[in-house]
Write a protein that binds this DNA or RNA. Structure first.
Lengths: 147, 147
DNA sequence: AAATATATGACAAGGTGTTGTCAAATGTTT
DNA sequence: AAACATTTGACAACACCTTGTCATATATTT
């Protein structure tokens, strides 16, 4: 069987996604380093901040496309550090709801102040329409493998 | 400072890239499992196959957007398993050139036979033009953080 | 209501990744 | 040529992630 034109583009996108993800992780580790954070922890904070309600660990995992165990480990560690708070979940005795603690919000705000100019800078030369198409396409593709 | 429209789209792309990368890694692990491989090892093989010449470890790392140490560990392990061969590099005494061994090529071919229909299937419903734009945009963005 | 299936937290093992350090090889400057 | 800087392999420490397993909580079926 041969690759269709779309199949070829898709394959290239997959490889470029791996590369970009790796580069972004390194960049995120660099940015968050002085606050004692990391890319992985920043993503947890971001997922919580972007949600209008508090989330359980498995919910965060689904949003991030990762295993619940990986998220659980980070959440427990960040809770111990005082970045997160556990809220009793009326719908489940064990599955607590996770929310940002005061410290977590502070760190998020500080990082946000760096993230905004960073995002603006790296996207300024690229056509907005193309960015929108890229985002929509990535979302479509992600859906096909959603957990 | 506020996010520009492009900055906002860029931010969403970053998050979706992390998610997609995680989902793809899980999928790749699943596909390669029965051949004793993994996503990480498949990517090494793919990088070598896509290059017209044999590559050194740091070269593979740059193509993949990862640290040379991570690649070195995988390459050494795969060499021990007989998937890769080391070729003397006339330009450098220590930095061997890496190439696929017979076994490595065999595995690659087998996996390729699965990857092609897989790529065709997951990309068939998406407009080719949009896929091309997505690929080009991801490449542009990756370049900004290249090692 | 009881039985069964699914979801969740806790824990562990192993693969993957970054960072740091050191010595050797290579490249550059003077 | 010598001094200095960069690149590379080797090794180690640690962070991150997936998978597997078990007990408990919740949801579904009968």
């Amino acid at each position: 069987m041969k690759l269709t034109r779309q199949g070829h583009a898709f394959t290239e996108i997959v490889l470029e996604t791996f590369k970009f993800s790796g580069l972004l992780t390194t960049e995120g580790d660099r940015i968050t380093q002085i606050y004692g954070l990391s890319s992985a922890r920043w993503k947890i904070i971001g997922a919580l901040e972007r949600s209008d309600t508090a989330l359980t660990v498995p919910q965060i995992a689904r949003v991030m496309g990762q295993s619940r165990q990986a998220v659980q480990r980070l959440v427990d560690s960040m809770h111990k550090e005082g970045l997160l708070v556990f809220i009793d979940n009326p719908k489940h005795k064990r599955a607590k709801l996770i929310s940002l603690a005061i410290d977590g919000k502070k760190v998020y705000t500080t990082l946000q102040q760096q993230q905004v100019p960073w995002a603006n800078k790296h996207s300024s030369e690229i056509d907005e329409k193309e960015l929108e198409i890229t985002l929509a396409t990535l979302k479509k593709l992600s859906e096909k493998f959603a957990l």
